[in-house]
């Protein structure tokens, strides 16, 4: 209604939206140009340097074609992604579950608190040699390492999200005769979702780090193992291919999480913008 009145008045005033083309309205063009220039400079500089130390974009592109053609890149990528998914999934289940328990029950918190704090305070990389003794060098150890890297941001955010649910919100549930279970699933959990999603966003980056570190240590399969292999062979271009794939993977996963976060926590975001 208000909009159509605005439109009417604008028409009556014979005003038109001014549309001028400006480079500043197209930051993606600027971004693409910036990347192009960087690649060109790298190409020229890279060709003059010892190929053992640095390579150049066309060589990297060629290496990429070879690695994709042989199927090696895709195969190792899938191995890496498989362990990432398994570790992440386990963390999500256990982190959210324990987090809700710790956030809702002071008993559960007191019981679990010391263990969580001790394990969280330890740099998780330090545990890898020990984990390799326990779980070997295969898929299992990678999943465990990723699990450890990812677990704490999810757990800690879930706990604080659940604790942040206001008592008055829970009281609304009680006033409308909700059971403990219904309060958990219909009040506490949805209220905590924005916090949990923020934890998931942090966890994605850490998960990638955990994945690579575990594969560098075990050096048998996955993208990390490819890095070790081609590093030992001084195949710099192939190493770059792996590094770029990891970068793209990071960007893709983080973007996907942000999208998911925006969708699931939309009410929170707009609420903040309004208040």
């Amino acid at each position: 209604m208000a909009v159509s009145l605005d439109e009417q008045l604008i028409q009556e005033l014979a005003l038109r939206r001014e549309q001028r083309w400006s480079l500043y309205d197209h930051p993606n063009l600027i971004r693409a140009g910036s990347v192009m220039i960087f690649l060109i400079l790298w190409e020229f500089y890279g060709r003059r340097v010892d190929p053992l130390l640095l390579t150049y974009p066309t060589a990297v592109a060629w290496a990429a074609v070879q690695l994709i053609w042989s199927g090696e890149l895709i195969r190792q990528l899938l191995v890496s992604l498989g362990s990432l998914a398994a570790g992440f999934g386990a963390s999500l289940l256990l982190g959210v579950g324990l987090g809700v328990a710790m956030g809702r029950s002071r008993l559960a918190e007191a019981i679990l608190d010391p263990h969580v704090n001790a394990l969280y305070a330890t740099p998780q990389v330090a545990l890898i040699p020990l984990l390799m003794m326990w779980f070997g060098l295969g898929f299992g150890v990678k999943v465990v390492v990723i699990f450890l890297f990812v677990f704490f941001p999810i757990l800690i955010n879930t706990v604080s999200g659940v604790k942040n649910v206001s008592a008055s919100m829970v009281e609304v549930g009680r006033a409308y005769l909700a059971s403990e279970r219904q309060i958990l699933f219909k009040v506490v959990f949805p209220a905590a979702v924005p916090f949990i999603m923020a934890g998931v966003r942090l966890a994605v980056g850490r998960g990638l780090v955990g994945m690579i570190v575990a594969e560098l240590f075990t050096a048998i399969t996955g993208l990390g193992a490819m890095l070790t292999l081609y590093g030992n062979l001084f195949e710099t271009a192939r190493m770059f291919v792996v590094i770029i794939v990891l970068g793209l993977l990071g960007i893709g996963l983080i973007q996907a999480t942000q999208m998911l976060e925006r969708r699931m926590a939309r009410w929170k975001e707009t609420e903040r913008a309004v208040n």
């Binding site: 008055s168 919100m169 009281e171 609304v172 006033a175 409308y176 009040v187 949805p190 209220a191 979702v193 009410w267 929170k268 609420e271």
Partner: peptide, 13 residues
């Protein structure tokens, strides 16, 4: 009995 709350008590999601 049903309650109407001072701060409305709506679930924002």
């Amino acid at each position: 009995r049903c309650m109407v709350f001072q701060q409305f008590g709506l679930l924002p999601w």
